[in-house]
Design a protein around this nucleic acid. Structure first.
Lengths: 231, 231
DNA sequence: GGGGTCATGTAATAGGTTACATGATTCT
DNA sequence: AGAATCATGTAACCTATTACATGACCCC
C-alpha cells in the first residue's frame, strides 16, 4: 500500500493553495507559476486535473460551485476540507523531516560509467561542469536581484538550497574529471585497457572469465571480492 | 515528443547488462542486484518486464530463444542489437554530460515550508539532520569495508557521489534549523506572527489583503515586489 | 512432508503525459 | 481581420506499480 492516497507532490501544492482560499484548477496553476513553485514541484496541466480529481475522490478537497464566465468553459471551484488540512500538515512535516531515497540521473550515469572509455567520460564530465557553472550563475544573479528588491532569503530558500546542491555536484564532477584525465586515479588504466580489448573484438565475458590474463595483476580487482584470498 | 523512445533509466541498465552477453529478464534483475545497481537505478519486477518489452518493440534488443528448464516458466533470452549499442552510448553520454532538472522532495518541502510554524519546522529539520548523519555513516562504513577488500573507488563512485550530496544537504539543513530556532533569520518573526493570527481565525487571504495592518512594517515584504515603490 | 523462499512471469489497475478542443481576447 | 495567445478543460494513450500465479528447491 502506498503511503498516501494521493502521492504526487503536486497534490501538496494544490492543498497549499486551497489553504488560502477556494480556487478552480486553472487558477491554482497560475498561482503556483506566479510564485515560482513550478521550479520546485513539477506542474503540468494533465497531471493537475488528475490530481484534483483524486484529491476530491479521497475527500481532501471538495467541489464548491460550478460557475461560468460568458462562453468560457465551466470552472469548478474547490475548497480544502478538514481532512485536507490535516493531510497537508502531516505530509509537509514528512517531507521536511524524512530523507527520501531519490534517484538522480547523474548517479545512474556514474554507476554505468565504465560503459564508455575513460577519456570520453572525462570530457563529458567537463561539459557537465560547464553547464553547472552556468546554471549556478543564473540562479545567483536571480537571488541578487530578488534581495535587491528587499525580499528575504526565506522566500528564496528552496532556490538557495538548489544552488548548494549544484555547487556540491560541480565540485565532485570537476574533481572526478581531473582525476580521470590525469590517469592518476587507481583503476583508470584497467578501464582504458578493457575498452581497447573490446575494440579488438574481445567480449566482456571473456575478459571477466580470465581478467588476469587480459589485464595483468590489476585485473585481479575484477574478481568477485568475496573469496577470501588464502594467505 | 519524448527524447527517447524508452525513457526509464532501468532500460539503460538493461542495455548495459546485455552488452556483456545475452540474458533473460530475471537474470538481468539478479545481475543488477549483485552489482548494487539498484541503489542507483530504481528496479522492480513489473517495470523490468515493461521495459524489456518496450526495448524489444523499438528494436534495441531482440528475443533470441525461448528455453525452458524442467517445469520452470519459460525464459526468453534477449540480445542487444546494434541500434541498442548506439542508444546505450548516446544515452549514457547524455546522462553524464547534461544536468537534468530534478525535483527533490526536500526542495518541494522547503518551497511550502511557511505552511507550518517556524518552531515546528526547525524541529523537523533537526530530525532530518539526524537521519542524514546516520545514512552518511552507514555509507562511509560500507566504503571503508569495500576499500579494505581492495576495491577501487571507481567501483564505488556513485556511492561516493551520494555521500557528497548528502553531506551538502546536511550542512544546509543544520544551518537552516539553527537560524530558524535562534530567530535571527530575517522574516522568521513575520512567519511566526502569521501562524498566530491564523490560530486566532484570521484567514491568509485577509492577511495578504492588508499585511502592514496585521504584521507591521515587516509585512510590507509580502506585497507584490513588482510595484516600483515611488521615491 | 509441509512451509518458506527462489525462479519466473502475467494481469489488472492506477497514475501521468501528450495531444487535442474551443471560445475569448489582444495584437498588428 | 487573421494570428497569436489566454483561459479552460477532456480524452486517449502509455507507463509503472501492485497483486497474483505457479512450480521447484531446500530446510528442519
Amino acid at each position: 500500500m502506498t503511503r498516501r492516497r494521493v502521492a504526487n507532490p503536486l497534490a501538496l501544492a494544490v492543498l497549499s493553495c486551497l489553504l488560502e482560499r477556494p480556487m478552480h484548477p486553472y487558477e491554482i496553476s497560475t498561482t503556483l507559476k506566479e510564485r515560482n513553485k513550478e521550479q520546485s514541484i513539477k506542474l503540468n496541466y494533465g497531471s493537475l486535473y488528475s490530481v484534483v480529481d483524486s484529491l476530491a475522490k479521497h475527500g481532501l478537497i471538495q467541489a464548491q460551485e460550478t460557475s461560468r464566465d460568458g462562453r468560457r468553459p465551466e470552472r469548478t471551484v474547490y475548497a480544502i476540507t478538514e481532512a485536507g488540512q490535516a493531510e497537508f500538515e502531516d505530509w509537509l512535516a514528512e517531507l521536511l523531516s524524512t530523507p527520501a531515497k531519490e534517484f538522480t540521473s547523474l548517479e545512474a550515469g556514474l554507476s554505468l560509467m565504465p560503459g564508455l572509455p575513460p577519456a570520453q567520460v572525462a570530457t563529458l564530465l567537463d561539459a557537465r561542469a560547464g553547464r553547472l557553472r552556468e546554471e549556478i550563475n543564473r540562479l545567483e544573479a536571480m537571488h541578487a536581484g530578488a534581495r535587491a528588491q528587499g525580499l528575504h532569503d526565506l522566500f528564496l530558500i528552496e532556490s538557495v538550497y538548489r544552488v548548494r546542491l549544484l555547487t556540491a555536484e560541480l565540485e565532485f564532477v570537476a574533481d572526478l574529471a581531473r582525476d580521470i584525465h590525469s590517469g592518476t586515479m587507481p583503476g583508470v588504466q584497467v578501464w582504458q585497457r578493457m575498452h581497447e580489448l573490446r575494440a579488438q573484438g574481445v567480449s566482456v565475458e571473456e575478459i571477466f572469465a580470465d581478467p588476469v590474463r587480459y589485464l595483468g595483476e590489476e585485473g585481479r580487482a575484477l574478481l568477485p571480492p568475496d573469496q577470501p584470498s588464502a594467505g
